[in-house]
Nucleic acid binder design. Sequence first.
DNA 1: GCATAAAATAGAAACGTTTCCAGAAACGAG
DNA 2: CTCGTTTCTGGAAACGTTTCTATTTTATGC
Lengths: 363, 363
Amino acid sequence: MLNHWALSDCEKKVPKGKPRKKPSTTPVTIHDVAARAEVAISSISRVLSGHPDVSERMRIKVLRAANELGYEPDFFAQSLRSGATKTIGFIIRDISNPFFGVIAQCCEQELRKAGYSMMLMNSDGDVATESTNIAQLRRRKIDGLIASLVSEDVPELKSSLEKLNAPVVLLDRELTGFNSSAILTNHHQGIEDATADLISRGHSRIAFISGSTRVYTTRDRLKGFKSAFKKAEIAYPSNLVSLGKFDAEFGESETKRLFTLIDRPTALISGGIGSTAGAMRGLKKLGLIPGKDLAFVAIDEWPMFDVFGQHYSSVYRDAAMIGREAAAALLEMMNGGSSRTIIVDTTYIVRESSGGGLKAKRK
Amino acid sequence: MLNHWALSDCEKKVPKGKPRKKPSTTPVTIHDVAARAEVAISSISRVLSGHPDVSERMRIKVLRAANELGYEPDFFAQSLRSGATKTIGFIIRDISNPFFGVIAQCCEQELRKAGYSMMLMNSDGDVATESTNIAQLRRRKIDGLIASLVSEDVPELKSSLEKLNAPVVLLDRELTGFNSSAILTNHHQGIEDATADLISRGHSRIAFISGSTRVYTTRDRLKGFKSAFKKAEIAYPSNLVSLGKFDAEFGESETKRLFTLIDRPTALISGGIGSTAGAMRGLKKLGLIPGKDLAFVAIDEWPMFDVFGQHYSSVYRDAAMIGREAAAALLEMMNGGSSRTIIVDTTYIVRESSGGGLKAKRK
DNA sequence: GCATAAAATAGAAACGTTTCCAGAAACGAG
DNA sequence: CTCGTTTCTGGAAACGTTTCTATTTTATGC
């Protein structure tokens, strides 16, 4: 609601009566406007902030003076006094991950439309950094926070989020006992479909690599994985499940480990773009080709997937939608609305890489 | 230099003498600390900001009081008074582009270490949005700006950047007559090498697709492209050069257009990840395979290139280094140093896709 | 011990807003 | 015409710092 008064022609004239200190940059304050319009500064503030108790005559006088002077209210003075900062914090584990990039982009677009700016902080998957970031955002009195947290069970996490005194939207995280909105993904459905498909093709030794079970993401994926085995009444291959970190290093080393077991898996589902990148590297080094030497399903698609991932099966989810929904949920809360939980669907998309693995099984 | 006093045990005791309004959040101000330490508020400020004229006795008294109360200076009051905001603006055309994502990530890391926070703004390749973003950052009195601008010749651009009154680092842009640091890429070297290689393999009808010539990036790339032809004393195929936008749509439509010409090109160099994505799509739809039906060189590598782009030749540059250098240059300027121009190298990396195109030439 | 300089401290004035409060117009109703 | 009620406006007090200036204390040289 700031700066919404009509700008006609900004003459940018320095007021004559009161010479200000520095005529260089933007020395025009509310006092200058008040002097020019010959009214009190409180009236300037009222007009510009859209206060109802303002006469039409006053409105015109003030608006004209403000425009003539090219007045812009000082952001920090406003925030100091009013408490609102029109800033929202965005904490993410890794902005270089294109999946998060898309989320951030869409979020920023929506928030900008609503007059908010976005403060971006990477936590690099590190709990300590994340905690510093939260503290930093608290000092900056953000109006709201959107976060993809590193872990859900950090001791002081909830209290530090509460101290923010601002609405919070969590991305793919469940924090019980803390009032926040959440954009969750229905991972289990897509994973279950994928796993079931692999089972129906004859696989039983299916490897599964994803991040830490300390976040909803992994737990929900695992749920889908297990569920498919249960429904098929096949023993669940717990020794082929490797859950630890979302990064490529983990994905690569675990892929190498699992696929050099004596009784190696015939299929692989790997979770998160980082994980998948690692898995692909591992497979490449082992000389194993997805769709031929093993069946393979990637969780999440990466940029240019249509060109470079065209024969890879995937469990797909819409990053742009997640970003938009997060922004919408936060805006609603900041406008006094209540928190909500939104669940975004995933879809198992079958492509060539779902084949293979079986004929080479007993070589 | 803020908040660097040692925190031992924050007892978080509300001062007894002066009951503050809200005992809920963080009502502890510099006055409370002054009252507890029984000194003037100016002394608190001096101690905490590391002013030299402070006795050891005072230092200890103040630090103890501050820690006992868990005092944190109000960010907005500080900024209002001092003018410094410890905030740097980051304007980028498209954060969902992983190349920019990496730059942003590395920047943020470096800036965070130095105590700065990053305000991220997307301009979506739109000049008007970019201009709004700059205005927004001016209101927020950023201490510095890192920007990848949409275009270099926007009328009011220079003046709006000057009005920021803060050091600016430009990414791959040349703005003559405006004092700023710049992280440029030596595109022409890599492109020239790539073009020369293609020429030496017998190509002469080499297509070239990249963004607008209104930015340094494209001009420097074109320079390398032309230079290779000149050195080889071959006519430069101006009708096969298509420069317009960096996005995938442009890349795709131009690829389709160029490769359906009667005398179609035998090779393609496409610039920027967006462009390349489009080009790849176009080629795929035309049923042309890089490395076979045409020789192909991509400018910039994308995530997981080692796995999914393994047979694509590229003109490579180090995004992480660009990010780090940008941060370093900005920090230097903010500390009173002068502006500088850094040139990051590119390397032509030959892979399989540089082959092909010729045998199918006269079918 | 005394003048002089230097160091340390307190007090108050900014910084540029918003918002509270009280008073002044404007407006009907009696 | 007066009285109460609204509507509007001006003045001043916050908001929580930093920084300037003046004053007090301490150190230094003779």
